[in-house]
Design a protein around this nucleic acid. Structure first.
Length: 363
RNA sequence: GCGGGUGUGGUGUAGUCUGGCUAACAUGCAAGCCUGUGGAGCUUGAGAUCGCGUGUUCGAAUCACGCCACCCGCU
């Protein structure tokens, strides 16, 4: 299911295989919450070389509903994507005003579209993710917002652990189940959580509750504590991380899997990745810049158009601007992941990382 | 020619009747932010001698008078 085939210090290459679908780690998953990435097609994502995406099991459970997807033959068939599909459980939606109340039994969500109440238990979460046909599913977890007091984080963590046990107990075949480490920004809690989740012997381990406003230093400190206290033979997934510099640093810690809305979201807001750093294409200095975003980029935007043209498209609010930007940023991340894997295989990861970060500055 | 209306940052407007905190709001402009996605979000900044002039007043975008520009109607 997961096999490490190459290692350069803590950074490593692995093969994740589920239900006959394979992906080489480290990889990044574009977010495809409702069975499609925004503005671009899943086929475009696939053609870039992505071997995995993440959808949101909970949001799909609300709409269009598990039955429809099940009767279509599962998510893979429905969206015509025959690579790995991860699903999230709905835990993250708790910090997004979705949630009404939670207790030991589960969480009550209110569907903002129609006011309907849904009570989700850990068992439900595993069930609907499996019914959807997920290759890798997440435990239902309790995610305290950044800034939550320690006493509250402690009781929240207790709940996450309790739910993790129940998910594990309920899970019976189908996709791989990932346990999620929480603990907010508290060192002792992170360590405790990592050990606890590790001991439950999940198929994979997720590091959750980071990158939600705590700042980079704390984030990496917490991530390292998590990595250092779990088995090194399992796929390790850092949830929600998606900037080039963060991915690179996390791979160095030993993280295998990433997902984030970040590349797509900032693309829609006029921010693009380049090897020299992020640029905001809407600013004046690009009005007369007739060169492509990146000289050797394979994306549709770079192959055909200039920065000035893209700048123009944004200024006139043409939706195509967001589409092209999204294609570019996702292509950039995929290129980065390719380079990361290559450099690990050649035992040159440290050199690659250093070089990349040296060049990657704010332009 | 007569009567009526309107004139406020680039644009669209509020404030005017019942003068008084640093002239407000939207959009646009300039820049920054966004990290397990509820269809263009958040923060900051620049930009107006309130059509022009005179007067009344401690104080005028606001009141009075004159002028100018545009719009509507009537001869």
């Amino acid at each position: 299911m997961f096999k490490i085939i190459n290692q350069d210090k803590d950074a490593r290459i692995g093969i994740l295989e589920v239900n006959g679908r394979k992906a080489e780690t480290p990889f990044f998953m574009p977010v495809s919450t409702k069975l499609t990435p925004k503005l671009i097609s899943i086929k475009e994502v696939e053609n870039m070389g992505y071997k995995a995406v993440i959808c949101n099991g909970f949001i799909l459970y609300l709409n269009p509903g598990v039955d429809l997807i099940k009767s279509s033959g599962g998510m893979h068939k429905f969206m015509n994507f025959n690579n790995l599909i991860f699903t999230d459980s709905g835990g993250f939606q708790m910090i997004m005003n979705f949630e009404n109340k939670r207790n030991e039994k589960g969480v009550e969500f209110i569907n903002p579209l129609n006011g309907e109440k849904h009570f989700i238990t850990p068992e439900n979460a595993v069930e609907f993710q499996n019914d959807l046909g997920a290759d890798c599913l997440m435990c239902l977890d309790d995610l305290p917002k950044h800034g939550t007091k320690k006493e509250e984080v402690i009781s929240s963590l207790k709940r996450t652990h309790l739910w993790a046990e129940r998910c594990k107990k309920f899970h019976n075949g189908g996709g791989l189940l990932f346990g999620i480490i929480q603990g907010n920004v508290f060192r002792d809690l992170r360590k405790e959580s990592a050990k606890f989740i590790n001991n439950l012997n999940f198929d994979g381990i997720s590091i959750g509750g980071l990158c939600i406003g705590e700042g980079k230093d704390l984030m990496f400190e917490m991530a390292k504590i998590c990595v250092d206290n779990v088995s090194r033979y399992k796929p390790l997934y850092l949830m929600g991380v998606g900037s080039p510099e963060d991915i690179l640093k996390a791979v160095d810690l030993g993280v295998d899997i990433f997902d984030s809305k970040f590349p797509a979201e900032i693309a829609r807001r006029e921010s693009l990745f380049t090897k020299k750093g992020r640029i905001n294409i809407n600013i004046k200095k690009f009005k007369n810049d007739f060169k492509p975003i990146e000289e050797n980029c394979k994306c549709e935007a770079c192959k055909n158009f200039s920065k000035a043209y893209l700048h123009h498209l944004f200024k006139i609010k043409e939706p195509l601007a967001k589409r092209l930007s999204t294609l570019h940023n996702l292509q950039f991340i995929q290129g980065l992941m390719d380079n990361i894997r290559t450099s690990i295989k050649e035992n040159e990861f440290q050199k690659f990382k250093k070089e990349f970060l040296k060049n990657y500055k704010k332009v």
